[in-house]
């Protein structure tokens, strides 16, 4: 590893740490603008929660000190008790919800990458033919459609009109439609990305050389072209996971999936401030870390990129 690359990685890691720190700071101080403060809210809290919070954050102490205590808690994954769900710790709610969300999100991401790359490659190979045009029209439409619209239509079609799948996402069968709804946008995006990068790669000299040597067409595509065409897709993985995380907020609400997204949305309506803070910080850190990993991966994979 050369020093330039090491410098780049160091810079990115520092930026990520600053960002996470900033998110925590913004969350804490913005939430303190709420009447009554985040740890009490505008409504009365139960006696037990009140006592726990006072002991934990010293609510009578100055704001700076409370902030430091909160920061210390986060480092040890302690976000305090929930204001509205009696006797539950925020971190427990997050970890329970995240298991479901990660399952759906993970499957949706894998589905999006596999289908997107396949469709994009097909479109590039069959350039300007009917197949290509159909794929491009559909993927353009899906890229421009907000996720909650797609999810609503899926709910109407699959769960209300035809009732193929259950409308509630409590069961495994009920998770199929949410997964598809969640993966449609990233899939279409990857399709477009793969198509354009594939077209660029297919026009390059080394592909012509391979063809001239008499290499089989399938081998040219899979062995020579696809490898380089996938690099732009790699850069999209970070933003895609971020999109899936935020997209799960609405999709989980629409299909009543018991995941992190739904508990986050519920906490917003209930004004459960400690849960809102905890989930925001958790999701934001996750997104920052995912972006960091993809960025570094990207630089490692493609040696042509300069590190300026």
């Amino acid at each position: 590893m050369d020093s330039k690359l090491a410098y780049y990685i160091l810079k990115r890691v520092l930026l990520a740490i600053v960002t996470v720190f900033l998110v925590i700071t913004i969350t804490f101080f913005v939430m303190n603008a709420v009447p009554g403060g985040p740890f009490l809210g505008e409504k009365a809290v139960t006696e037990a929660v009140m006592k726990a919070l006072e002991a934990k954050y010293g609510l009578d102490k100055p704001l700076g000190e409370q902030y430091l205590t909160y920061l210390k808690g986060i480092i040890t994954f302690d976000f305090g008790p929930s204001l509205k769900l009696r006797g539950k710790e925020v971190i427990d709610i997050i970890s329970v919800g995240f298991k479901t969300s990660a399952k759906i999100g993970g499957i949706a991401a894998v589905l999006a990458v596999i289908l997107g790359v396949t469709l994009g490659s097909i479109a590039a190979i069959k350039r300007n033919k009917f197949t290509d045009k159909t794929i491009m029209v559909l993927s353009t439409a899906f890229v421009a459609t907000p996720s909650f619209i797609i999810a609503s239509f899926f709910l109407i079609i699959f769960c209300v009109n035809y009732q193929i799948f259950p409308a509630r996402g409590d069961t495994t069968a009920g998770l199929i439609v949410p997964i598809i709804a969640l993966s449609l946008y990233p899939m279409s995006y990857i399709t477009r990305l793969t198509r354009s990068s594939m077209l660029e790669v297919l026009g390059q000299d080394y592909i012509r050389t391979a063809r001239a040597k008499g290499v089989k067409s399938s081998k040219v595509i899979f062995k020579h072209a696809l490898k380089n065409a996938l690099i732009p897709v790699l850069t999209y993985i970070g933003p895609m996971l971020a999109y899936i995380l935020t997209g799960s907020l609405v999709v989980e609400r629409i299909f009543s999936v018991p995941g992190l997204g739904r508990s986050f949305v519920n906490s917003i309506t209930n004004r459960d401030y400690t849960l809102i803070m905890g989930t925001t910080i958790f999701l934001a850190s996750l997104i920052v870390i995912l972006n960091l990993v993809t960025d570094i991966l990207y630089k490692l994979v493609d040696p042509r990129i300069d590190f300026s």
Binding site: I268, A284, I287, N291
Partner: peptide, 22 residues
């Protein structure tokens, strides 16, 4: 750079919650 790497949707939700009540 720093603002760009903030997850926008989450910050928006956070600010909306607070601004709504305030």
């Amino acid at each position: 750079d720093v603002i760009y790497s903030l997850p926008d949707m989450l910050i928006i939700i956070l600010l909306s919650v607070v601004l709504n009540t305030t």
